[in-house]
Design a protein around this nucleic acid. Structure first.
Lengths: 342, 342
DNA sequence: ATGAAAGCGCTAACAG
DNA sequence: CTGTTAGCGCTTTCAT
């Protein structure tokens, strides 16, 4: 038979409530009884029943994490978010319930309504996400990773993509580039999705105009063939481009390959800067100068925010993480061209 | 205030237990009262409290899923497993609690001991996994994805990697190839890991010897550079190789690139067959003939198995999924060589 | 600083 | 086929 709180109380010669308080730390206990109780807990291998605890305290110590499934999102980054959320949640003595996006609004209502979870973290929020109104009136704290059109009454966190786009241009401008191109996400991402594509574009454009740099923008499907096509068009239509910003992880490597096949040496003929996870940047040849999506950091902070809300603290409704550009081998001054024949 | 079961009972003019039984279907109810209760549930927006339910019934309706984190595992496949497990679990009215491998044995003990979960699914089991003994004596059903050295008292499921390795060789043999190479996982995977690498190798070797085909084996780190290195060595040391089996997703594409750069046309000079997810096989150029890892199917069946165990049914302790080879563009008869100069 | 006792909301005997 | 009732194991007032 498994030990109950009463067994521990009896074993330690105290009241059940004392055991509870020792474990929760919700009131001061003399060091002596504390030790006695802890020893009994240890001796009996006591583990409190999660359901009983949840029923009595109205806290399940579980947070829901809603992960996206759809294409156009780089899967390893999702995993990275997820693991960082799990790790951070454990640090707050919480577990993580995994929901998929296709459970949609119903899933949110269910886990919140049944008190299965105390709070909700939603990844990959779209500009006009149908879940937003539901989250607004749900009686549970929520944190969104990504920004919807209106953040009123919500708590949102993400990389500052506008600043990231700008940082890439700033970097290229400082190196002396005068015309840069942005290879971005597929068209549908700009049209209805999370807004991060638009924000990157905005930062890119703003910084370029501040530096007096010419630009072009090239949406790109996330397939190798599309990358080749875009690279060809880009070099043909804008032969004076010396700097390229890539915001589309899956095509980063194929794009480098396409430039190489086109006879352009990176970084001698062409500098390439990407917004992508470090793992992607470090696995290309040459390694990519990049602004990373700090999935770990975002996941951790999302959990911190949601825990703060659970504790009744006030939190900002928008948190933008400052981008950090890491220089690697794919960028340098323009005009060092040493082009080999095609 | 949120509706309780008593509210529903009062509203419907029945006893609370009747409401419970209507919802659980655990005893027969006249269609008339059933409808009345359901209408009341609807009207009041009743949602049973998960904690209360778990306390009273000793069932949380949650299963734990332990996902791996370490390198050498292709992340998208993990995600695919995870989503298929979540979807399948929902089909059985269960939710999924996400655990990371680094919580290790403690995490298993915790979620099982606190009755947070009813059952456990563990991915990426190693040959001598420290969690095995714990799972054996835990008072909860468990299903392992992957095979440890000894499956006694366990329930394991995985792709039949031996059959998969053999299927690749069979395919190449049928096409007329006489010497084939296996490009496999990094050495450490063979040494201490899940056994699937070994099983693939065993099937590969067995089938080759059955067909009287010469073989060589080439462990390969999962980086593009390693792929290039291995390709070079392979072609240098075994110039008569016409068929290559790749069991290492991350290097499949780079390997094709390396063969191309070495002047070998696939499939004219060299046939390549991979064991990898369809998404990987379909995104290379040329598209890879492959045996897929049926993540969806494995996830679904893992859930079915664990649910069967929860229902007290007997289940086999080893389930091997038959491989399915899909022919694409990367394999053909040997000797059609049309090699262009390097 | 500690105890006693009243629930938390539901399920599952038991009773009819 | 349905109602009555006794817990499930814990937390948290209230009391001292």
């Amino acid at each position: 038979m498994v030990a109950k709180i009463d067994d521990v109380a009896r074993h330690a010669g105290v009241a059940p409530s004392t055991v509870s308080y020792v474990l929760s730390g919700k009131r001061s206990i003399s060091e002596r009884t504390r030790q006695r109780v802890l020893r009994s807990v240890e001796a009996l291998g006591y583990q409190p029943h999660a359901g009983a605890r949840s029923l009595a305290s109205n806290r399940s110590n579980v947070v829901a994490l809603v992960v996206p499934l759809r294409a156009g999102i780089h899967v390893p980054v999702i995993m990275q978010f997820a693991t960082s959320v799990v790790t951070a949640a454990r640090g707050h003595d919480h577990d993580v319930l995994l929901l998929t996006q296709d459970e949609g609004v119903k899933g949110l209502r269910r886990v919140a309504g049944t008190a299965l979870v105390d709070a909700i973290i939603v990844m990959d929020v779209e500009l006009h996400d149908p879940r937003i109104p539901v989250l607004r009136k749900l009686q549970r704290p929520a944190v969104l990773i990504g920004f919807p059109a209106d953040t009123e009454g919500l708590t949102c966190i993400d990389l500052d993509f506008a600043a990231a786009g700008a940082a890439c241009v700033d970097h290229l401008a400082a190196l002396g580039h005068r015309r840069v191109a942005l290879v971005g996400s597929p068209p549908e991402v700009y049209e209805r999705k999370t807004g991060f594509a638009r924000r990157t574009l905005a930062g890119f454009t703003r910084a370029a105009s501040a530096h007096g740099i010419a630009t072009s923008v090239h949406p790109c499907e996330d397939t190798p063939d599309a990358a080749t096509r875009v690279a060809t068009e880009l070099l043909r239509d804008h032969p004076d481009v010396t700097g390229v910003v890539v915001h589309n992880e899956p095509v980063a490597a194929p794009l480098l390959g396409a430039f190489r096949e086109a006879g352009r040496v990176v970084p001698d003929d062409l500098s390439v800067v990407a917004i992508c996870p470090d793992e992607v940047a470090e696995r290309t040849s040459p390694e990519l100068t990049s602004v990373a999506i700090p999935a770990d950091e975002i996941g951790r902070q999302a959990v911190d925010l949601v825990m703060a809300k659970l504790n009744g603290e006030q939190v900002p409704n928008a948190t933008l993480l400052r981008p950090r550009l890491v220089q690697r081998r794919s960028s340098g001054a323009p005009g060092r061209s040493n082009r080999r024949p095609v």
